[in-house]
């Protein structure tokens, strides 16, 4: 089963996603946390390390995969597994804006991510994906940001089509947009 969880910053989507992944792995499936955020600097590194330890206590193994998300699969063990991916906003940005300043066209970025996640999902027991609602501020951004919004919007909508459940989290409250909890 694929679950897509979407919300604004600080809405409680991560905590909700963790709760769902714990429930989905009660049968003893291996739990993985797919971290897509690019970490910068020593301070960022320390922060991440703390979170990695916290998740280890919950029996969750962290795989850092800032791009080419399907490459995370061979890093997992055999047997049943559930994955929490956090988050699509970072993944799209990392795929789109290269370190050398080069920009990949938004359609290519969106297609690649959707394809890789579909492929990965077929090898997993459950996939919980956290994504971001950054589409409602009415700002007329410059072209690069507009393309980023298009790519993330497209990935969200495509995965929402596949997902068994789509959940919008508002002030910590999960609202079922698709499917029943």
């Amino acid at each position: 089963m694929m679950i897509l969880i979407v919300g604004g910053s600080g809405c409680g989507k991560s905590a909700y996603a963790e709760k769902r992944i714990m429930e989905l792995s009660l049968d003893g499936a291996m739990r993985y946390y797919l971290a897509t955020m690019q970490v910068y600097g020593e301070e960022g590194r320390r922060k991440v390390q703390r979170h990695v330890e916290l998740r280890k206590n919950k029996g969750m193994l962290t795989i850092e995969q800032t791009r080419d998300v399907s490459e995370a699969l061979p890093k997992m063990q055999e047997g049943s597994k559930v994955v929490l991916l956090e988050d699509l906003g970072n993944l799209v940005a990392n795929e789109m804006f290269g370190e050398d300043g080069a920009m990949t066209p938004w359609e290519i970025v969106a297609d690649k991510i959707v394809m890789q996640l579909r492929q990965m999902n077929s090898s997993l027991d459950h996939l919980v994906i956290v994504s971001n609602n950054v589409f409602e501020d009415g700002i007329d951004y410059e072209e690069g940001t507009r393309d980023y919004l298009r790519a993330l919007g497209m990935v969200n909508a495509e995965l929402a089509g596949d997902a068994t459940q789509v959940v919008e989290v508002v002030a910590g409250i999960p609202l079922m947009v698709k499917g029943k909890e």
């Binding site: 609602n133 589409f135 919004l149 919007g153």
Partner: peptide, 11 residues
């Protein structure tokens, strides 16, 4: 009349 509202790039 039907009114549709939603964020940008929501399809």
């Amino acid at each position: 009349m039907v009114l549709w509202i939603g964020g940008r790039a929501q399809g």
